[in-house]
Simulated assay, not measured.
Amino acid sequence: MHAFDPSERTQDEVARFVKTVVTPRPIAWISTQSADGAENLAPFSSYNYVSLQEPTVLFNSPNGEPDELKDTARNALETEEFVVNVVTEADIERMDHTSAAIPEDESEFNLAEVDRGECETVAAPRVADAAVSMECTLYDSIEIHDKLMILGDVQYVHVDEGLLTDGKLDMRDLDTVGRLGGPYYTVSDTLPFERQF
Rank of each mutant, 00 (worst) to 15 (best):
residue 130 A to G: 07
residue 95 M to H: 10
residue 98 T to P: 05
residue 68 E to D: 14
residue 75 N to T: 08
residue 182 G to M: 12
residue 132 V to W: 08
residue 143 E to Y: 00
residue 133 S to A: 15
residue 119 C to V: 02
residue 121 T to F: 03
residue 88 T to A: 13
residue 6 P to V: 11
residue 112 A to L: 05
residue 84 V to C: 04
residue 94 R to N: 08
residue 57 V to Q: 05
residue 168 K to R: 15
residue 49 Y to F: 14
residue 49 Y to E: 09
residue 192 P to A: 11
residue 184 Y to V: 00
residue 85 N to A: 11
residue 82 F to T: 03
residue 69 L to D: 07
residue 123 A to K: 07
residue 139 Y to E: 15
residue 142 I to R: 13
residue 126 R to V: 02
residue 192 P to D: 15
residue 141 S to V: 00
residue 174 L to A: 09
residue 117 G to E: 09
residue 153 D to P: 01
residue 121 T to H: 09
residue 103 P to L: 10
residue 110 N to A: 15
residue 61 S to M: 09
residue 44 F to I: 11
residue 172 R to H: 12
residue 147 K to L: 10
residue 98 T to C: 08
residue 76 A to H: 05
residue 74 R to V: 03
residue 62 P to I: 09
residue 4 F to R: 12
residue 180 L to E: 09
residue 162 G to C: 08
residue 131 A to Y: 05
residue 106 E to P: 00
residue 98 T to G: 04
residue 121 T to G: 01
residue 47 Y to I: 02
residue 167 G to L: 11
residue 153 D to W: 06
residue 42 A to E: 05
residue 134 M to T: 03
residue 153 D to G: 00
residue 157 V to W: 04
residue 44 F to P: 05
residue 195 R to K: 09
residue 102 I to E: 10
residue 8 E to V: 00
residue 75 N to W: 04
residue 188 S to W: 14
residue 195 R to L: 11
residue 180 L to P: 04
residue 3 A to K: 15
residue 78 E to V: 12
residue 120 E to M: 07
residue 134 M to E: 03
residue 109 F to I: 06
residue 29 W to H: 07
residue 132 V to K: 06
residue 30 I to H: 02
residue 58 L to A: 00
residue 140 D to W: 08
residue 166 D to W: 10
residue 105 D to W: 02
residue 63 N to K: 13
residue 31 S to L: 01
residue 192 P to F: 03
residue 163 L to A: 05
residue 16 R to E: 15
residue 46 S to C: 11
residue 155 Q to A: 11
residue 173 D to Q: 15
residue 152 G to R: 04
residue 141 S to A: 13
residue 172 R to A: 14
residue 191 L to I: 14
residue 183 P to W: 09
residue 61 S to R: 07
residue 39 E to A: 01
residue 154 V to N: 05
residue 108 E to A: 04
residue 166 D to Q: 14
residue 52 L to F: 13
residue 74 R to C: 06
residue 164 L to D: 07
residue 158 H to T: 03
residue 117 G to C: 11
residue 170 D to N: 14
residue 3 A to V: 14
residue 58 L to K: 00
residue 139 Y to R: 15
residue 32 T to Y: 06
residue 170 D to S: 12
residue 187 V to K: 11
residue 136 C to I: 05
residue 48 N to P: 02
residue 71 D to F: 09
residue 61 S to V: 12
residue 188 S to E: 10
residue 8 E to A: 06
residue 124 A to N: 01
residue 87 V to L: 07
residue 48 N to I: 02
residue 7 S to C: 01
residue 64 G to Q: 11
residue 11 Q to F: 11
residue 32 T to I: 07
residue 79 T to L: 13
residue 99 S to Q: 06
residue 114 V to R: 04
residue 11 Q to A: 12
residue 113 E to Y: 03
residue 77 L to N: 08
residue 106 E to C: 01
residue 128 A to Q: 12
residue 121 T to L: 10
residue 174 L to H: 12
residue 67 D to H: 15
residue 105 D to G: 01
